[in-house]
Write a protein that binds this DNA or RNA. Structure first.
Lengths: 126, 126
DNA sequence: CAGAATCCATAGCGATACTG
DNA sequence: CAGTATCGCTATGGATTCTG
């Protein structure tokens, strides 16, 4: 999948380009903060400060960076209300919601196996 | 889910402990290299060097570090064949395969939306 | 309030060399 | 071949300050 495919079919160039792009997107998205932000947004529309308090432990800077990145990739939509003080809201787009479905899967997995994992850690550490 | 829950039920302590553990596991696992390694292993059993060539671009060091971490969490099983030269093989455990299912989802997502994402990037950058 | 920009510490990571 | 250890650089990420 994400690994580059080497073949000599006519559209080899397109394939490798698609793969390297896929890989790049994967690298963008497959990080802790991005996934937690996506998870926290869910079906809701949240303000910057609301996302910040939902995603526990994230710094101001990491939040803006990741929101920018997600916006660039078209996973979140950013709407600015020209009020004072400014009000900026974030929602998942359709692709964003699609990705969120898989993130849900990861979260469920975490809860299903955390006891197992905890036990394994103790075995390993001792 | 991964966000800490604040309530005053009798087992509040267990809940927050479970949540912080879940979050810690999430932080371990939700990183590019770990997910790519899990994806590459699939149903197969691979040697260290084979994983290395499957996961394109990973360094020796990152591979060992992540394999160690995954082993510690009980997601991969490591078997050493006492031959010379040594032969070390890695397989996903049951929890590991369960997680892999969701990683598959992310990879599929990447392929389904990469054109959309590419377009969004161009819009954003220009 | 949202966010851009700066400064600074430390963790991530690659390269290299060394062992069983 | 697999794994550990060391060095050194860069990127990451936190704290802080400044703006509309």
């Amino acid at each position: 999948m994400v690994t580059k495919q080497l073949n000599d079919s006519p559209d080899e160039a397109d394939l490798t380009r698609a793969d390297s792009l896929a890989r790049e997107i994967f690298s963008d998205v497959a990080n802790k903060w991005a996934l937690l932000i996506i998870e926290s947004l869910g079906e809701r529309t949240l303000r910057f400060s609301e996302v910040r308090s939902e995603v526990e432990g994230i710094s101001h800077k990491m939040l803006t960076q990741n929101l920018r990145m997600l916006e660039r990739n078209g996973l979140v939509e950013r709407t600015v209300h020209p009020t004072v003080p400014p009000r900026v809201e974030y929602t998942l787009t359709e692709p964003g919601r699609a990705l969120r479905a898989t993130v849900e899967g990861m979260c469920d997995w975490t809860h299903r196996y955390f006891r197992h994992i905890e036990a394994s850690r103790h075995r390993f550490d001792g």
